[in-house]
Every structure is written in structure tokens, then in C-alpha cells.
Amino acid sequence: MAGEAKTILAYSENPDTLFELLSEARELAGKIQGEAAAVLLGEKVEANLEELGAYGASKVYIVENPQLKGFQVEAYTDALYGVAEQVKPELILIGATKRGKELAPRLAQRLKTGCVAECVGFEVADGEIQMKRIVYAGKVSSLQKVKGKPAVATVPPRLFEKRKAEGKAEAVSLQVEVKAPKAEILEVKPKEVSGVRIEEAEVVVCGGRGIKSKEDFKLLGELAEILGGQVGCSRPIAADRGWFTEWVGLSGKKVKPTLYFAVGVSGAIQHVAGIRGSKIVVAINKDPEAPIFADADYGIVGDLYKVLPALIESLKKHLKKG
């Protein structure tokens, strides 16, 4: 429809992620003479229009429905589909949390459109939005375009900064059909989330399966503290052993510190995919054949239980003097 503003819709069940998406959507909307809008879904919704406006939303589309109690992907797909049918956006941005990553493709399938998963950047060429994503375990950056309208994309949390500016949002309530989901949530066991923003750390000390117990991570903590850094881990430490909630790698966090320590980490390609942005990578591993040495700048072949205490002592000495 000529003359009508092009809309970029942003949705995330996580409020901070929504603000980040809106800030990026506002910038992108500026390049296509459009506007950014937020979508809020829930059984009952409280919209802070001032805040949403400041982060970039011109409009806030609200769907309130008893079926939207708790995040159920079937119901949330219905709701977001209903919003998209009425608003006819150019692009729908969804936060790439696990919930977002299961919602976006289901929604895109219903809209019969393409979806770019975990976009790390946007470009506008000839008025068209192009999206960048990383493929092949971090080795290749792929620039893609969605053929139809609307385009759907998921965006990793904390990739873009939330930025406040002048702006006011107007609330628009929408009636959409939401069917009762077939799935039922029986129990939610919250994880103890550390709140550490490892993506932003200048130094990351990452432990793998070479670390024998959760207790032993204190050694890594000590090293991290001396260097003003954060502790991270490989996927099995978090997902198998449950010692942490987040991990570094292809399916976890992408870090970009000046100094990265891989301690008792073998260096699987999926792990390395998350550390490509590091300036200097140091590996400590007792196996001289471990692949991590090929992806490290400096390595020590040795038992981490001997190397780490010695390294901590040495750094204490040198950094005090320095």
C-alpha cells in the first residue's frame, strides 16, 4: 500500500532483549523511511509506553488473551501471526532466546516466508534489507535476503545495545484469534542464573571437561579475578553437568575478549566458533594433540592442576610489581 509507513515489528519475551531489538529496529526503519513497533503478548499486559517509545517504538501492539498465560509456542505463534496479518510489517525481529528461536520458524512457516536465524547485522541496499548470519561453525559470514514479505529474523540477545532517544509510543490493542495450545507446561525449574555478561568481558577464563569438579572452578575464578575477567565453560560443563547455565561456543555465547584462556578444553570446532573474536587465545591442556593448540596463540602442554596455580602465583608477582 503506497503512502503507508513501513513497519519493523520487534518481539521478545525478554524485556531487555526487546529494548535492544527496538533500538536496532529504529535505526533500520530510518533507512527505509519506516517505523519501529513493539509487540507485547500476554494474559495481561502492562505497557510502559514512555520507556518503549524512548527505546524506539512508535507503536506498541498489544494482544491480551487468557491463552497467552505462560510462553506456549503454539499460542504465541497464533498471536504474532494475527498481529502480522493486521499490521503487514516489512520485517519481524524476534529475540533469539531459545523460546524466540522456536517461535520464529513456526511463525515464518505460517506466513509462508523466509526466516534468517541469529542475524548479526543488517544492511540496506536499494531500499531492501539484507541480513548477515554466521554459518559453518563460525567460519563463514553469509549475507541473505528474504524474498517475500514480511521477512522474519531472530537476533541474539545482547548483540545490539539498547539506546534511548526522544520518542513517544502509542498503544494499539489488537483482537486476534488464539487457540488453546495442545501442549501443557507441567513444571518450571528455574536455573540459578549468574547474570555475568561474558560477551562483554575483557578477559575470559574458560574451563572444559578437564576440570574435575565444580569446586575446582575456584582456580579459574582466581585467575579471572587477578586479570579482571570472567569465568566461562564449555557446553558439557553447563549442559551435561549443570555447573553453569551458559557456555561458550556455537550453540552458546560468542565472546570477544582481549585475552581468552581455554583450560582443559579440547577445542572442538563448535567451541572455537564462540571464541573467534578473541584477540589472544591461550590454551592449557595436558594432551599435546588437542585441537585447541591449533586455534590458540600460546599454549602450555601440561596438567592444568599444576599450571594454573603456578600461573596465578606468577601473575600475582608480576602484576604487583608492574
Binding site: 523466509g114 563460525g138 524474498k147 573467534r276 599454549g299 602450555i300
Partner: peptide
Amino acid sequence: LSGIELVDMQGFAVERKRVVIKD
């Protein structure tokens, strides 16, 4: 039905120094 068009692909070759201290 395919909803996506590839515009361009670019590889990242991250070169590390690979200095290994052993023995």
C-alpha cells in the same frame, strides 16, 4: 517456496600464532 536468497558469502580465516610450550 524457498524464502531466502543468498547475496554473498565471506570466509573468516582467523590466524593464530600457535606457539606451544612443552617439555
